[in-house]
Design a protein around this nucleic acid. Structure first.
Lengths: 211, 211
DNA sequence: TAGATTGTTAATCGATTAACAATC
DNA sequence: TAGATTGTTAATCGATTAACAATC
């Protein structure tokens, strides 16, 4: 029932918690103080039973007859997800995409701080983007170890992504957010999440066949 | 069994097809001509049985004892997903993220052509990015209807995303790739896919609690 | 109190896997 | 032929939903 201890909570449940949190942030922003599994479910297109079931894995966060105190639930979910603190993230690849990521405020707003930037191109190295200077990939391991960084974002071309991932794994990185359109092979102790917008588009075009 | 007809193929199966296709593209790039459900599964961390089952929804694409002809399977999957042609996509929001999207070659390489750009900021309107000129959101509907565009990418700040989505729905858009960190409410005839990297990060930090 | 909503159990539903006959 | 791998069926596993007692 505590936020660590991972008895056997299904990963699919973990995957929905950030979505719940995002909806709660929005409700809070709209001035709401209390919500219900029904209201939340309606907004997200998820059944209220599922939301209650998911949350119940971590303890009773609501009150019968009333619902959920939004601020309290946010706090609890942040604790469960281990985001009741700031995380440092390394960013590798400073092409257009890397630059957009480095400048995107959505990360820092939600507790993820980009702590170092890397690229291999000589003309990129030494550039200042945001608050940091781009450093050569040869210094990756050293930097990550020195700063005890555990998360990385990979925004290099597909053909370099596996090589970069290998170095990241060696450096002790435990989670990789991969923007390259390729599957990475890493040890089972390292997590990977994929961001491939084209996959999302292709998934939609399937349903768009009638002219 | 044909690529339209949608008897009742589970959406979760559809969601895996682009992943299979991505792996096949890679195998082809490495010079392979034939693969097996076992090899594909090993690369993707998916069981071979699941791959065979998924593919069998659309017909028998393999040969017993041999496996799958990569080029043939790619072609079949592209047909199933309706990406055996080019799709025009509208892009709304020309901040850092929108610009990175507009310049990203990964879309055009895989059959998605960004056909028009929109923003509401007067200083952005009229700018040329890539091959197109940024136009005001007030011209959105007109453009989309004129060009018969059915897909859109939304890269505006969260607070404007629902408003933009409403206009897109009115304009006849059938699929929205949403980069804003917010859930969109749209009619059930319109599909939405979400790109929220922070959700990916939060999903990983859950497993990163031991110090 | 009456009304509402939780947390939880049991029932249903759906997805994954194991196994194997068919066959290249 | 012997070996390999598909496509498919049946068995297992897991996730979602329905229902309701508990209770605010």
């Amino acid at each position: 029932m505590s936020s660590n201890g991972h008895e056997t909570i299904p990963d699919i449940v973990i995957g929905r918690l950030p979505i719940y949190l995002r909806a709660l942030n929005r409700l809070a922003g709209e001035g709401h103080e209390i919500t219900s599994s029904h209201e939340l479910g309606q907004r997200l297109g998820i059944s209220s039973a599922q939301i209650r079931k998911d949350l119940s894995h971590f303890g009773g966060f609501g009150k019968q007859g009333t619902g959920y105190q939004i601020e309290y639930l946010q706090e609890k979910l942040r604790k469960v997800l281990n985001i009741d603190r700031e995380w440092e993230v390394a960013l590798i690849g400073m092409g257009d995409l890397g630059k957009a990521i480095a400048n995107y405020r959505g990360f820092s707003d939600r507790g993820f701080h980009i702590a170092c930037l890397f690229d291999s191109a000589p003309d990129k190295i030494g550039q200042t983007i945001g608050e940091f200077t781009v450093r050569p990939i040869s210094e990756l391991k050293e930097s990550i170890e020195a700063q005890h960084i555990r998360l990385a974002m990979v925004a290099v071309p597909a053909e370099y992504a596996q090589g970069v991932a290998d170095i990241l794994v060696e450096s002790g990185i435990k989670g990789i957010l991969n923007y390259a359109p390729i599957n990475l092979t890493v040890p089972s102790t390292v997590q990977v999440q994929y961001i491939d917008p084209v996959v999302g588009l292709q998934r939609m075009t399937y349903y768009l066949d009638e002219e």
